[in-house]
């Protein structure tokens, strides 16, 4: 007597092998795409980099040369102000969620944070336009920062929450048992113990917004001149890439490639910092 499925066995084995190779093949093509794109960006970009990109402002249309100093300064300004605004709020909400886990209100807040993460960035740009740019009558660097700060919140909140709930309760109890207030317990015991995770949440947030253009189009707008005033419009690297990429001038394209490679390297650097943090900077309990 033979098992009744023995005839199908050969075919099933073949099918299994085909399936496995399909999984391998498609996965490897994903990896290949990553390398193709990065290679292209770096090849185009590094060749385009020169000192002028970092040290000069844009030349008028038609003239070759010039750089994106104004946009580098602008990006740093818009992103760091966004971080200054978002980090205290994001960490606070994260603390609240970790502290009130399981309650109905905090479940709703957590859902709202998740949904906020999925809102198209351009919509956030419109809202900030209506809130700030329209009433004040002018584009401004700080309005862009506010738009980006809102986009930064979800990763900061989620990382803070997830880090804090992993800290043993006994630690919090130890501090409270010494008579420390909840505030001081949080600031001096909980946050230092979770600093690695919270910090990487902040970096993820910065990495998320550093390359954004859509929310800046009608807030920070753009400015070919070097500007340090947060009340005035300002250029950012991604905005310049967008403007130049849509232009017909080769030299502008060159500068845009330079900007792309600066931006991508910066974000990859941030990602690397996060990985190092997650693996190395762990508090032992």
């Amino acid at each position: 007597m033979t098992p009744y499925d023995i005839q199908g066995l050969q075919g099933r084995r073949v099918k299994d092998r085909i399936f496995t190779s399909l999984v391998w093949g498609l996965t490897f093509s994903c990896l290949a795409v990553v390398f193709i794109i990065l290679f292209y960006i770096f090849e185009k970009g590094i060749g385009s980099l020169n000192w002028a990109i970092f040290s000069q402002n844009p030349k008028p249309v038609g003239e070759n040369g010039g750089g994106m100093l104004n946009a580098i300064v602008g990006s740093l300004m818009v992103v760091s102000i966004a971080a200054i605004l978002a980090i205290p709020v994001g960490v606070s909400v994260g603390i609240y969620l970790a502290e009130n886990r399981g309650r109905k209100l905090s479940d709703r807040i957590a859902l709202a944070v998740d949904v906020l993460q999925g809102i198209p960035s351009i919509v956030i740009g419109i809202v900030i336009y209506v809130w700030i740019v329209k009433p004040t009558g002018k584009f401004s660097s700080y309005s862009g920062s506010i738009a980006l700060a809102i986009m930064m919140l979800p990763p900061i909140i989620k990382n803070t929450e997830e880090t804090l709930i992993l800290i043993p309760t006994t630690l919090k109890e130890a501090s409270l048992a010494l008579g420390a207030s909840y505030f001081r317990t949080t600031m001096k015991v909980m946050l230092p113990a979770g600093i690695g995770g919270i910090f990487s949440g902040c970096i993820i947030g910065i990495a998320r917004i550093a390359g954004e253009v859509a929310p800046l189009l009608f807030t920070a707008f753009g400015n070919p001149a070097l500007n340090f005033n947060i009340l005035k419009p300002v250029d950012t690297i991604p905005k310049v890439i967008f403007t130049y990429a849509s232009s017909p001038y080769d030299d502008w394209h060159r500068i845009a490639w330079g900007g792309s490679v600066i931006l991508v390297s910066f974000i990859i650097l941030l990602n690397t910092i996060i990985k190092i943090f997650e693996s190395r900077w762990k508090v032992q309990f």
Binding site: T170, A174, L176, L178, G179, V189, A193, V283
Partner: peptide
């Protein structure tokens, strides 16, 4: 105040819980 009570009453827990940072 809870804080005052806790400062006047010390506590040692089952598992050692020094502040790791």
């Amino acid at each position: 105040e809870a804080m005052t009570v806790r400062r006047r009453v010390g506590m040692v827990f089952q598992r050692p819980n020094p502040f790791p940072t």
